[in-house]
């Protein structure tokens, strides 16, 4: 009961967030977007057609009526059809979102797992050359733009100037083998770019935990380093680690996918969004802008609930 109450309250503040985001984006669309009538009707529409379309789309209605309708459409997932392709937007999302997840998942998992591993090494050998080497590599990795990494990796691994081992573009995935072939280069680029940030963050968390008194107690009672890590550091560091993981998911999905997919020609939500921006395809954009905050709010709530579940000191308030 306690938990339910808490979740509801968190969701309520999430709703406020949602309203804010949708309001801003709708403001853009109404006042700054091109008049969609001619886009839909094509060339030389008749006056009656124009009038009818404007009425259907409620283009002359007062602002808040249109905003309300937008919210209602979002809530009921009545997302309409793409202006560029005519495809149903919910179908488009159902098609592209899983693909994007497939594309980004290995990079996300590897980037964080490797980051945690390197961070553990760096934290345990803190101040020694291993630590300094890892930290220097992190700073260097953080200084390379994602764009540069993508281009460079593609040249090195997929082109005839490099190793030419992997496909240059596309996503012709039929089985595990082809999946591995198409996902490798994007994954390498993603891991390369995120590893630096991840490692530094995890190292900071681990160093802080390793310095705690109860770790000293554990050692004083004979714990080895691996035991200290497993029983006294990682469980205690779980909260900030898990929180960060959860928060980085929306960022990765929205941001990372756009670049990779448009460059590698992979038909995921990022590429669809990019094309929608170029073509001013408002139904698609409305859907993406509307659903992104939902992801964020879900992540926020999840992180909060998990934080409280993990730490016996905190009571759900």
């Amino acid at each position: 009961m306690h938990v339910l109450h808490y979740i509801l309250r968190k969701l309520a503040s999430g709703v406020l967030l949602l309203l804010g985001v949708t309001f801003i984006s709708f403001l853009f669309m109404v006042y700054f977007a091109p008049d969609p009538t001619y886009k839909i009707l094509g060339k030389n529409p008749t006056v009656e057609q124009v009038e009818q379309t404007r009425k259907d789309l409620c283009l002359d209605c007062p602002f808040f009526v249109r905003y309300g309708q937008y919210l209602r459409d979002l809530a009921t997932l009545e997302l309409g059809n793409s202006w560029s392709t005519g495809e149903r937007v919910d179908g488009l999302m159902a098609r592209t979102v899983p693909l994007s997840l497939e594309l980004l998942a290995p990079g996300f998992v590897l980037g964080n797992a490797l980051g945690l591993l390197l961070a553990m090494i760096a934290a345990c050998y803190r101040g020694r050359w291993v630590d300094r080497l890892i930290m220097a590599a992190c700073v260097a990795g953080m200084s390379v733009s994602f764009v540069i990494a993508i281009i460079a990796f593609q040249v090195v691994f997929s082109s005839s100037y490099g190793l030419d081992l992997f496909p240059v573009r596309g996503w012709n995935v039929t089985d595990l083998g082809s999946y591995v072939r198409y996902v490798t280069v994007p994954t390498l680029a993603t891991v390369f770019v995120t590893l630096g940030y991840n490692t530094r963050f995890y190292r900071a968390v681990l160093v802080e935990e390793l310095g705690r008194d109860h770790v000293r107690t554990a050692r004083a009672f004979g714990a080895s380093t691996s035991e200290v890590l497993a029983l006294h550091v990682l469980p205690n560091a779980a909260v900030p680690i898990v929180t960060r993981l959860i928060f980085s998911i929306p960022l990765v999905v929205i941001g990372g996918s756009l670049l990779i997919e448009s460059y590698f020609g992979i038909p995921g939500i990022g590429k669809a969004t990019y094309e929608a921006i170029g073509a001013s395809d408002w139904p698609v954009l409305k859907a993406v802008v509307g659903l992104t905050p939902v992801l964020f709010v879900a992540a926020l709530t999840l992180a909060d609930v998990l934080t409280n579940a993990f730490d016996p000191r905190l009571e759900l308030r």
Partner: peptide, 19 residues
């Protein structure tokens, strides 16, 4: 701050550039 963080950056730039 929460609202601004939730808006996808590239969409925001595109929209603002348009507006």
């Amino acid at each position: 701050m929460g609202v601004l963080d939730s808006i996808p950056f590239y969409l925001f730039v595109a929209g603002l550039a348009f507006a």
